[in-house]
């Protein structure tokens, strides 16, 4: 009886010690809108249609991405290039290229299917909107604008981050840019846990 009471007290005190210990553990929360988390280098986010250095579109309208897409999220309608209006180096270009980002499962099969590395997945992930129609991205939003450079494939990005998204994260984030992950809070919490178990 007495032993049970003492054991109960000890258990309660151990609980108090645990909660008090967590008071001073660094919190894992990232204050999202002001601080963005660094993603893994190959993060699958919003799509991008790339260009060649001379400004021509990489997409040749072959529709392989449309066939590869497991979610039927892509629609490509090809058209012939003419000498007067040359959009891409090949014979054809994509007259219509639409991706429904609500259907998309961000698997990256389109990226793998593409013979010219035209369609790539960028680490951009902030695409919330108010209407469903807004999630159908056409060429006006997918294609790199004429003055916006060529776009980059994941292999060509040093940290897997395009400059316009990476700026905030690299300035204010506490994460390790090289590895992309901040495991320190977890490690510390784990250490506290072990201490509590040992004591």
């Amino acid at each position: 009886m007495l032993r049970a009471v003492i054991a109960g007290f000890v258990a309660i005190l151990a609980g108090f010690r645990t909660t008090f210990g967590y008071l001073f553990v660094k919190k894992p929360t990232i204050a999202y809108p002001s601080i963005k988390k660094q993603h893994a280098p190959r993060f699958h986010g919003l799509h991008e249609l790339r260009r060649y250095a001379d400004g021509k579109e990489r997409c040749i309208g072959c529709e392989l991405c449309q066939i590869a897409c497991p979610a039927n999220a892509i629609v490509v309608v090809g058209a012939e290039n003419t000498p007067a209006d040359r959009r891409s180096p090949g014979e054809r270009y994509a007259a219509r290229y639409e991706i429904d980002e609500l259907r998309c499962i961000f698997c990256g099969l389109c990226e793998e299917a593409c013979p010219t590395d035209a369609i790539v997945l960028t680490p951009r992930f902030e695409m919330s909107d108010y209407r469903r129609g807004s999630f159908v991205y056409a060429k006006d939003r997918l294609l790199v604008p004429p003055q916006g450079g060529v776009g980059s494939a994941p292999d060509e990005r040093p940290n897997g981050i395009p400059a316009d998204l990476g700026a905030v994260a690299q300035q204010k984030s506490t994460v390790d840019i090289a590895t992309g992950y901040d495991a320190t809070w977890y490690g510390r919490a784990l250490k506290t846990e072990r201490r509590g178990l040992a004591g």
Binding site: Y22, L23, K27, A189
Partner: peptide
């Protein structure tokens, strides 16, 4: 605040 800190929240 204290409850949050004890539960690993800010």
């Amino acid at each position: 605040k204290v409850m949050a800190w004890m539960q690993l929240r800010p």
